[in-house]
Amino acid sequence: MAAFATSDELRARWSLAPEGDQANAVLEDASVWLQAMYDLPDNPSEKLAAVLRIIVCSMAKRVLQSENTDHMESLSQTAGPFSQSSSFRNSEGNLFLTKAEREMLDKALDDELNRSRGMRTVEAVSW
C-alpha cells in the first residue's frame, strides 16, 4: 500500500523533517493506521486525498518530534535563579488523530460517500 503522503510533501509542511527511509516509514505507518481505523475508499477523490495527506503529515510530524525525547513526560532544569520546564505531549511516538483531524476526516468521508450528518426532518402524515 502506498502512503497518502510523500517525504517531500512532509518536508514542504515541516522543514525539520528527516530525509530518507525514516520519514517514508512513518508516513506509511500513519497511512496504514488510517486504513485500519477508517473505511477509506480505494480511490479517494482529490478532496479526500488532500485531507488524508494533511492528516498523515501531521501524524508523522508528531511521531518524528518525539524521536529525541527519550520518552520523557516532563523535563525540568534549574541553574541558580533560572529554571526551565518542558512536557512532551506524545513521548512514546504513538499514532493518533486530534479532535480537529477526526472532524475533518469525518466530514470529508461523509462528502465522499454522500452520507448526511446531523438532524433530519421527517414529515408525519396520518393514514
Rank of each mutant, 00 (worst) to 15 (best):
residue 110 D to A: 15
residue 99 K to V: 08
residue 84 Q to A: 06
residue 126 S to G: 05
residue 110 D to T: 04
residue 16 L to Q: 14
residue 46 E to R: 15
residue 66 S to V: 00
residue 126 S to M: 12
residue 77 Q to I: 10
residue 84 Q to T: 07
residue 44 P to S: 03
residue 35 Q to F: 02
residue 60 A to M: 06
residue 43 N to K: 13
residue 76 S to P: 00
residue 50 A to I: 02
residue 51 V to K: 11
residue 2 A to G: 00
residue 96 F to I: 03
residue 83 S to A: 05
residue 93 G to A: 04
residue 55 I to P: 01
residue 78 T to Q: 13
residue 37 M to C: 03
residue 47 K to V: 11
residue 39 D to L: 09
residue 38 Y to H: 13
residue 15 S to M: 04
residue 42 D to W: 00
residue 32 V to K: 10
residue 43 N to C: 04
residue 112 E to M: 03
residue 18 P to F: 02
residue 98 T to A: 10
residue 50 A to F: 10
residue 3 A to H: 02
residue 86 S to D: 09
residue 91 S to R: 15
residue 114 N to S: 14
residue 113 L to T: 10
residue 36 A to K: 15
residue 4 F to C: 00
residue 74 S to K: 10
residue 54 I to Q: 14
residue 107 K to H: 13
residue 22 Q to D: 07
residue 59 M to I: 03
residue 67 E to M: 07
residue 104 M to Y: 09
residue 62 R to F: 02
residue 22 Q to P: 00
residue 79 A to V: 07
residue 77 Q to N: 11
residue 27 L to M: 01
residue 83 S to V: 00
residue 116 S to L: 12
residue 14 W to L: 02
residue 74 S to W: 05
residue 5 A to M: 09
residue 56 V to E: 09
residue 76 S to N: 03
residue 91 S to C: 12
residue 24 N to H: 08
residue 122 V to F: 04
residue 16 L to N: 11
residue 105 L to G: 03
residue 102 R to T: 10
residue 123 E to L: 05
residue 127 W to Q: 07
residue 58 S to L: 08
residue 20 G to C: 01
